[in-house]
Design a protein around this nucleic acid. Sequence first.
DNA 1: TTGTAAGCGTTATCAG
DNA 2: CTGATAACGCTTACAA
Lengths: 340, 340
Amino acid sequence: MMNLKHKRCTLNDIAELSGVSKTTVSMVLNGRADEFRIKAETRQKILSIAQQHHYRANIYAKALQAQRTNTIGLVIPDFSNFGFAQTSKILERLCRNNGLQLIISCSDEQPQQEAKAIENLLERQIDLLITTPTQQSKRCYPHLDTLPSLQLDRVIKDADHVPYVITDDQSAVAEMVSGMIEKHQLSEFHYLGGLLQLTPSEARLQGFKCGLQQAGLPLQADWIHHRDYRAESGYIMMQQLLQHAGRLPQAIFVASYGLLVGVLRFLNEHQLLNQLSSRQLHLATFDDYELLNCLPFNINSIRQNHEQIANQLFASILNLLDKKPSENKIIPAELCWRDQ
Amino acid sequence: MMNLKHKRCTLNDIAELSGVSKTTVSMVLNGRADEFRIKAETRQKILSIAQQHHYRANIYAKALQAQRTNTIGLVIPDFSNFGFAQTSKILERLCRNNGLQLIISCSDEQPQQEAKAIENLLERQIDLLITTPTQQSKRCYPHLDTLPSLQLDRVIKDADHVPYVITDDQSAVAEMVSGMIEKHQLSEFHYLGGLLQLTPSEARLQGFKCGLQQAGLPLQADWIHHRDYRAESGYIMMQQLLQHAGRLPQAIFVASYGLLVGVLRFLNEHQLLNQLSSRQLHLATFDDYELLNCLPFNINSIRQNHEQIANQLFASILNLLDKKPSENKIIPAELCWRDQ
DNA sequence: TTGTAAGCGTTATCAG
DNA sequence: CTGATAACGCTTACAA
C-alpha cells in the first residue's frame, strides 16, 4: 500500500545493486561518508544508484530505531480561525524546513474532540505537543507530565510551569481603550467579552479595566458583558445592551472578531451602522482583518503578531527537543488606529 | 525522546508483566481474542495490565510491518484561506474518527514550497496524497503515477485521469450573473478575475460568459479583467477599470474574496461605497463570508459547500485505499442573494 | 489455548 | 575502508 504501482526500493535494494553492504550505503546516504572514509568511487556509485531509483529512506524504520519521530503535534481550536491558521501556517513551514513534521488537529472547542486528537497524536509517538487547551485543569492533560509540551495562546491555570507563547492582550487593550477615551473625551465605555475562564478573555478584560483607570474613567459594573465568542453572542449582547440602556453607548470594545461580526449584524439590521459613520458610536475590536480597511466607518483593531508567535514557538520547540529549558514568551500586539 | 520522563511500555513489557507471550498480548489487544480462543482469564489479565500501564501500540513499528501507514497527505495553497481551512478541518475530523491521520501542508502558491511539501510527505510513506496543484503540468507531480492521488479544487489539465473533487463554479456564476442582469435590467457587466491558468478561474469566467448569454447580453471584450488573486490586484483592476471608462460600471462580478477586499478598499478610499448603497453599482463575488451580512450595502455571493466537498473527498479516499476506482465529484454551490 | 521465530527498513556497534 | 549483526516494536505463520 505504501506504494501501489512498483514496490518502493529500500536500503537493501540499493546495497545489492551497488554490490556493497547496507551499512556502507547507510553511511553514504546520511552524508557520513567522510566520517567513515568511504572510497570516493564507492560513494559515487551508491549516490548515483540511489538517485536513479528514487531511493527515499523509510522514516518509520528510522523512527523505530532512533526512538525519535521528529514529529510534533499541534492541537488548536479551529483552523478556520484566521489567527490560528496564520500561526499554524508559518510554524508548519518552519518545521518542514528544519526536518520536523508538524501534525495539526482541531479541537473545535470541544474537550472530547480535543482529548481524542491528543490521544491520537500520542499514539503517533510525537516528540512534543503544543496545545491551545479548551479545559482549565491540568488533570485533563496527562501528557503534560510525560511529554515535552508547549501552550499556545491559552494557559492552563495550574500548569503554568509548562512553557507558553501568548500575546500581550492586556497591554494592547489597555492602551487602545485609554487612547480612545482621551481622544474622544468619552464618559462611557462598554465591553463585550467571551468565555471568561479562558486566559486571553481574562487578560483582555483586565486590559479594559486598566485602560479605564489610566484614562481616569471610573468603571461601572453594567458596562461589562460576557458570553461566549460566537457571532450569535455578539448579536445578543448588543441587543441586551440596547434594551437596558435604551440607547447606544458612546463606545464599545469587542473582545474578538467573531463577536464583532454579531455586533455589526445587529447594528446593520437595526439601521444603526450610520451611528458609526457619524461617530456617535466608537468601536474597537481584538484581532485585525483586512476588511476593516474597506468599511465606510472606522473600527480600531488590535493585530496579533502571528509571525513572531510562530517564531517563538519554533524556538521553544528546538529548546525542548534539545532538552534545554524554554522560557515563556509574551508577544506584543500592534494597535491599528482608524478613527482619525 | 519518544518519551522523556519514563520509558514508554511496549508489547513485550505487557507480555512479561502478564506472564504470557507477545503473540497472545497482540491478539487480545487487537480485539482478535475470540478468533484465537484466548482464555477469558488471560484476556482479562492482559487487558487490565495494558490499561494500568497506559499501553499504546507503537504505530511506527506497526506501519513498518504492515507496509501501510494509514496516513494521508493534503497539500493546499494556504490554510489561512477560509475555504481551504474549512474543508481541511472537516476532513481532518473525518479521518481521525476513522483511524486515518491527515497531514496538512501549505504550498503558499509557490511551486517550490509545494514540491518540498510533497517530497516530505512521500518520505513519510503516506498512503494517499491530495493536492490543490499550483502547476499545470503532470510532469511536476511524479507522485501521480506511483501513489493513489486526489485533486481538490483545481485539476491539472493533462492529469484528468486522477480523480478530483471540485465546486461547480461555472453553473453558479452563470446563474448569478444572468439573475442579476434580469433583476436589474443591466446593460453592462464587468468581470475581475484571478490567474487564468487555474481551472476554477477558467470555470468562473466561463460561467460569467454563459450568464451573459443566458440573459441575452452580448459580451464586450473590455468587460473582462484579469490578474492574480491578491487583494492588491483587485484594487489595481478597479483603478484601471475606472480610468478606462471614466465612470463606475453598472455591475461587477469579482472572482474571489481576496479580490473583493481590494475592490472595496479602492471604493472606500475614493468615497465610492455610497454607489453601492444607492444601487448605482451592483456587486457579486465568489465565496461567502459572514461579514457580508453586516455591511450597509448588498453584495451577492456564492457559497461553496465545504462540508460536502470534505465528505466526497473522504469517500474517495476510502475507495482508493480500498483499491476501488473513484469518480470525479462536482459539487454544486449555493447562491446568496442579498440585493432584494 | 499459547509460544517461537522471522521479518518489516533502518542505524549503531564492533570486527575485520 | 567495509561488512556482519543486533536491535527498535510489532504482526503473523507455524509449532506445540
